[in-house]
Design a binder for these strands. Sequence first.
DNA 1: AATTGATGTTAGTCTAACCTAACATTCCTG
DNA 2: CAGGAATGTTAGGTTAGACTAACATCAATT
Lengths: 131, 131
Amino acid sequence: MNLQESAEMYLKTILLLEKRNRSVRAIDISREMQFSRPTVSQQIKNLVANGYLELDDTKLIFLSPKGRKIAEETYRRHNGLVDFFTWIGVSEETAFEDACRIEHYISQETFDRIREYLDKCRKIDRTKKDS
Amino acid sequence: MNLQESAEMYLKTILLLEKRNRSVRAIDISREMQFSRPTVSQQIKNLVANGYLELDDTKLIFLSPKGRKIAEETYRRHNGLVDFFTWIGVSEETAFEDACRIEHYISQETFDRIREYLDKCRKIDRTKKDS
DNA sequence: AATTGATGTTAGTCTAACCTAACATTCCTG
DNA sequence: CAGGAATGTTAGGTTAGACTAACATCAATT
């Protein structure tokens, strides 16, 4: 996945808004990401042109299959990183912020190892508690 | 530390070259980072203007105290991340690449937690082996 | 139906960080 | 010490991704 960081952020945000609000408009993205309306408008144009998004006639925004795949992948990474960071004792706020930035730069390999590792540790933890 | 990613990369690279070669010229940075000579020349000018670097009359490059602090911090983070990634089973090559990107985005808090965590785990590991 | 407010778009600007081409300087080596 | 290679700099261009100002559209209320 060689999308720019910024495109991934938009797609992830759209997925988030979709979960939260049912439908997604440019203004929602603008408010969520704290970017100006023109900026968002432009980026949506790009993402539509590249097949990551679709618009209906009332300007509602939809993830295409291709876009959804990336959005979900980014979202999954984000949550995985937050889980890991909070597990090792990072505050929720920092964990969230760091995940937001790092999710775009971490390789699949490293992400997989982190998740495996976290799963393993949690299992051990549970065993301890049970005994 | 609110320096751009790119500035941190230059400073870290200069520290690395200093360790490796004793003295550092623009061309060394250019080769190490794979950027053109003009690009490096420009960036050095910026870093000098902002007090991160100093040049002598033969154009040798030196880290100022302020620049060295950032370079060392970045370097430390880099190594810390590589250690952690390889410890959980990431290949050395990927660990290095991921660290290079992530070192600029991770907060101090998260980095500290990762290091503490790694230290703890290693200690446990050693205890196991001893028994 | 006209006004107003919310939303979206267009046009033009800015900055960071890269690039190439061309010029300037410095340093070796014959 | 002259000339060519290595290194550094200047000038100007490109791209991504943000911005503001101003215009366009549309819906709801009076």
